[in-house]
Design a protein around this nucleic acid. Structure first.
Lengths: 114, 114
DNA sequence: AACTTGTACAACCATTTGGTTGTACGTTAC
DNA sequence: GTAACGTACAACCAAATGGTTGTACAAGTT
């Protein structure tokens, strides 16, 4: 069984907020496929290096990527564990929905006893 | 296999942005368990009715809930299908991590518009 | 040593966000 | 009919967001 470490509201806020931007999702996608330096990432987007740097910082603050120095570069790598946690949160909502169905079923089962 | 309807970048933005707020996640949670009027929801939070109304509007704009008139009330219901789609998106990232890039290219085509 | 590359960070700006209060209006209850 | 309830919506405000440019500096390159 997968152990889910408790996430604070603020942490969940940061994760979903980080995912709520197409450029950041693309950066995440690229770093999932393979590591990349910040400047390599920045070359792909029609915005300044500083803007891309900020996007990476948002992803890093959410724990979705990590940055590691290598020479003068900073290598960005995705943290699939955090994505997994976000998925787990959505699973929990789906589970709530399922629980609601179960309760309705029980209600109907009750009705049938009449 | 689950058929994923193509989601635009803007739609995905709205979904994750809607999820990036603890009050909105709580509203979603409550409406997953059972429908609720806007005023019933508003009673639970230490903010104005108008503020809660806005949170519901954000969730509605993301397709995570729907609002239906019933008398003078507006009944809010969760849309589990949209949650399922968000989960599908995160699944796709997890798949990327596992290196299954080819099969997912089409799914991510939307995110690649940069 | 001088130059180029990659990054960090500050200052600035327009827009969006998340909250407020106030007003208006349809619906229900008395 | 009048009062209370539930909602919609506008106007306003402070703070956060997402972008910019400019400066500084360490690490490679020539």
């Amino acid at each position: 069984m997968v152990v889910q470490v408790e996430l604070s509201d603020a942490e969940v806020d940061r994760i979903f907020h980080a995912l709520a931007d197409a450029t950041r999702r693309d950066i995440l996608r690229r770093t999932l496929i393979g590591e990349a330096s910040v400047s390599a990432l920045a070359d792909s987007y029609e915005m300044s290096f500083a803007a891309v740097q900020k996007h990476v910082a948002v992803l890093e603050g959410a724990g979705l990527v990590t940055k590691e120095p290598r020479g003068r570069e900073r290598i960005v790598r995705a943290e699939p564990e955090t994505i997994e946690r976000a998925r787990g949160l959505l699973d929990a909502y789906a589970e709530l929905w399922r629980g609601r169905i179960d309760r309705l079923d029980a209600l109907f089962a009750d009705d049938e006893k009449h």
